[in-house]
Amino acid sequence: MTGRILLVEDSPEAVELTKHALEGCSLESKAIKVAYDGQDALDYLFAAGRYEGRETAELPEVVLLDLRLPKVDGFEVLEQIRSNSRTKLVPVVMLTVSKLRDDITRAYELGANSYIVKAIDYDVYHDTITAACAYWLKLNRRPY
């Protein structure tokens, strides 16, 4: 099962809200792969741990990556994605509540393709996700 979107998010509630927001994109539910911590996300991408033996030929079209994650935090996940020759070109969009300038700067320095702040107002969040999804899944051209 390969997702078009890899959503890395620790809170199941947040995952639910995001999935809800992604409805605007009219995707199959299979298309969204959720990892609940950083290690899980990396295992999935590199076919390790419980994903050992997974067919890795297909990469997600975009990774939506939260910053605060159990086990391995978002920055570490980003860094590992970028340092692996197979995954280094995968578009990574940071999706987090943090508005801190330091966080934004660091994410871009590590090679994030985009940085989206999760608005508290769900209406706003919904619009944001719809727009991001439209951009990364429909408009964007990937090198693989």
Binding site: S11, E13, L17, L67, V97, S98, L100, K118, Y122, Y125
Partner: peptide, 20 residues
């Protein structure tokens, strides 16, 4: 950092689920 992240996260959920 905690304030920025941890306080805002539940607020989002409150607003989101309330809207749903």
């Amino acid at each position: 950092y905690s304030v920025a992240h941890d306080l805002r996260s539940p607020l989002r959920l409150i607003d989101g689920f309330t809207l749903l």
